[in-house]
Design a protein around this nucleic acid. Structure first.
Length: 243
DNA sequence: TCATTAAATTGTT
DNA sequence: AACAATTTAATGA
């Protein structure tokens, strides 16, 4: 359950230069294109539990994470929340909905205090119409996300918790979708547990196993990836001490 | 800058 | 779910 009735932090402000550096699609733009959209970019703070988008709301912005961690989720008819993906620093999302100018199809809410940036739908479309670099970025993004969601289907069918944690982590460290993450991901074991859909205890066990295998290093309040490729290819092991 | 205290996070049962 | 141990952040001399 989320803390109820959190007011939406809709107060938006111009982004700081430091925050602009964290926006990956500004680099491939030409100088004139960048100058055109720069004034349209806004930023805002989201507190834990705050909604960045809600299902059914009209599309206003194309959003991205500057700093922090968001989760993408949806609710079943029975009111059960199911989480699809975590969105760490550098992640931009909702292209599909913005492209079609449809209402949001997912809820996006902050797992912890985060800085969220956005550009208005019209600016997004202007970039699509005028910038080849931007089109490349979006196409690349869509392609990576498709791969990610197909991989997510596999993950959900894997029962083994260690494997699920490993694959989910690998997805969060995706350098194409989340260039802001780098080698160290700031995420608590509790947050990861929400994301993967396991208890914190089980996630703690799984992380210990992954660290033992030399794939990650557990740090206070975060994780360091030592071998991303190995994380992706972790396979179920019967850790019942049988051989 | 250091010492103290509170808060957050982790490790274990 | 509860608890102890550890790490970080905040505070004030």
């Amino acid at each position: 359950m989320q803390p109820p009735g959190e007011p939406l932090h809709q107060r938006r402000r111009p982004p700081t230069p430091r925050e602009l550096d964290g926006i990956p699609w500004l680099a491939p733009l030409s100088d004139s294109e960048r100058a055109r959209v720069l004034p349209d970019i806004s930023a805002g703070d989201a507190l834990p539990g705050d909604h960045v988008c809600r299902v059914g709301r009209p599309v206003t912005y194309w959003f991205g994470v500057i700093e922090g961690l968001l989760k993408m989720s949806s609710e079943t008819a029975q009111g059960q929340t199911m989480t699809f993906a975590g969105l760490p620093s550098g992640g931009w999302f909702g292209e599909g909905t913005v492209l079609k100018r449809e209402p949001y199809r997912y809820n996006i809410q902050a797992l912890r205090r985060s800085v969220v940036a956005g550009i208005p739908v019209d600016s997004f479309h202007w970039l699509l119409d005028h910038s080849i670099g931007f089109n490349r970025f979006v196409m690349n993004q869509l392609n990576e996300r498709l791969a990610q969601f197909i991989a997510a289907r596999e993950i959900d069918r894997l029962a083994d918790p260690d494997v699920r944690v490993a694959r989910n982590l690998a997805a969060l460290f995706n350098p194409v979708l989340y260039p802001g993450v780098g080698q160290v991901l700031r995420i608590t074991q509790q947050e990861l547990a929400y994301l993967v859909g396991l208890s914190r205890q089980r996630v703690n066990e799984a992380l210990a196993a992954l660290q033992g295998a030399g794939h990650i290093r557990i740090e206070y309040g975060g994780l360091r990836v030592l071998d991303l490729e190995a994380l992706r290819s972790v396979t179920p092991v019967a850790h019942t001490g049988r051989r």
